[in-house]
């Protein structure tokens, strides 16, 4: 009998004989894996820093629809103020025109009382 050949046969048999982990060992390994597995961190609650007046105004502008909307709103406010200060008779003439009183057209002055805005006293 050749000793080298015997040993090679034995080693080959050992190599072909797997050592299987028991169910208990597998469970222990998987429990370790579960405990050690990185988890996605929950997002920290957003904390608002203290804000100044400009930031507050900026938020307000955003709430109203942005800078363009704020500009439109300002223009409308100024126009409203102007109409409030000026004589509303023109608006009455305009209303008459819309209602069908065409005679009013001849006399309509769209800005009859604007003189008060630029007349020097």
């Amino acid at each position: 009998m050749n000793d080298d050949m015997d040993l090679d046969n034995w080693l080959a048999k050992a190599a072909a004989t797997p050592v299987s982990p028991s169910a208990a060992l597998t469970a222990r390994i998987l429990a370790d894996a579960d405990a050690a597995q990185p988890r996605p961190q929950p997002q920290a609650a957003r904390v608002r820093p203290s804000r100044g007046l400009m930031a507050w105004l900026s938020d307000l502008a955003e709430g109203l629809g942005g800078r363009r909307a704020l500009a439109g709103l300002s223009l409308a406010s100024v126009a409203g103020l102007f109409l409030g200060v000026a004589d509303p008779s023109a608006l009455q003439s305009l209303a008459g025109l819309i209602a069908g009183d065409l005679t009013a057209v001849e006399q309509m002055d769209l800005l009859p009382a604007t003189d008060i805005l630029w007349t020097e006293n």
């Binding site: 050592v19 299987s20 982990p21 060992l25 894996a33």
Partner: peptide, 12 residues
């Protein structure tokens, strides 16, 4: 899957 692949080799 990693356990199924590697644990038998490590244990053997």
């Amino acid at each position: 899957l990693l356990t199924a692949r590697l644990a038998p080799r490590a244990l053997g």
